[in-house]
Amino acid sequence: MVSLSSFLFLSFVLFLTGLMLVLGRKSIIFVLIGLELILNAAALNFVAYSRFVTEKLDGHLFALFIIVIAAAEAAVALALAIRFYQLKETTHLDELSELKH
């Protein structure tokens, strides 16, 4: 039957793909997609525990806030990406290294 551990597994898969994208890909948009996935994994966990363990709606609310914050974050991140593209004519992350020592 559908149980908590299955959801944990699914959120882990999401988290893993998100991580792989963030670490492995060189284009900014890819990293942002990866980030979205990681956030979703966390939200899924919250809701799973809220459904199976606490039977209270706090988990739902927490996931709701995660979604809201993720949206705001995505907006700002994408604006940065575009401005980065306008400056450097590329979205390749390795160009983004002015902070090098």
Binding site: I67, V68, A71, A75
Partner: peptide, 9 residues
């Protein structure tokens, strides 16, 4: 998106 999120809330 900002207003979309606002309406969602």
């Amino acid at each position: 998106i900002i207003f979309d999120v606002e309406s969602a809330l």
